[in-house]
Design a protein around this nucleic acid. Sequence first.
DNA 1: CGATGGTGCTAGCAATTGCAAGCACCTAGC
DNA 2: GCTAGGTGCTTGCAATTGCTAGCACCATCG
Lengths: 125, 125
Amino acid sequence: MRVEDVREAALGKSGTVATIGDFIREQRELAQVSLRQLSRLAGVSNPYLSQIERGLRKPSAEILQQIAKGLRISAEQLYVHAGILSDRGASEVVTAVLADLGLSERQKSVLIEVYESFRRENVTA
Amino acid sequence: MRVEDVREAALGKSGTVATIGDFIREQRELAQVSLRQLSRLAGVSNPYLSQIERGLRKPSAEILQQIAKGLRISAEQLYVHAGILSDRGASEVVTAVLADLGLSERQKSVLIEVYESFRRENVTA
DNA sequence: CGATGGTGCTAGCAATTGCAAGCACCTAGC
DNA sequence: GCTAGGTGCTTGCAATTGCTAGCACCATCG
């Protein structure tokens, strides 16, 4: 999976956050699994998964968890597309790290450095 | 609000994670608002809120968002009690990383691994 | 006392969610 | 050609979710 595929999958073709159905389909196609295969992996009925992908139904968080498991991605990513969690920008991750009482100052610096280098990777690629 | 009240509210009286209904009631009582007041603040019907508190219904993430707004707490806290986010989701850093659409799944895993190993260092030290 | 405003809950209903049964279509093998 | 296995979708239904209307109870005020 190439990096630009990752970005496009997350943001959708128009550059905005993809709807949950579109995003699931894109992830499924990237993973090269059929709708029925994913429905088996996820433990969600194949017609229902089809309806979700086409935007005809709005799945619960529980179903999203199952789909995430089937796709081997974090449920949180699906939650963002479903509007259950907001997309965290770079500043929120950094803020959370800085505010974490269980980290030393040095650890915070290291973690932020790693995080920012990952973000730079994704921008330049 | 005293510290032991906060701990008890999060964990429930038995020391385990409180059910979503118990947790909402506890937060509501700590905030000293009636069920009807919260239902108005949250934009959720008063009977439905009552049923949720008593564990008779299982609210959607959308309803939990509204209740969180009414209680002036983060929705993520409610999600943890509702099983939508894992205990890990109670960590703002982990949630922020997982919900950051600018990172690949692999980068997320690496960051969280680093973060959690840092946290473990600090516990043993 | 009656009226008003507050409290939390019951019951029934409409809309939504998730499913099973089944359909149409395609490909491969005998 | 027929069978078997795969693909994604349609349809109707049961269960669940969230609501409205209404109830019983309490406290306060004129």
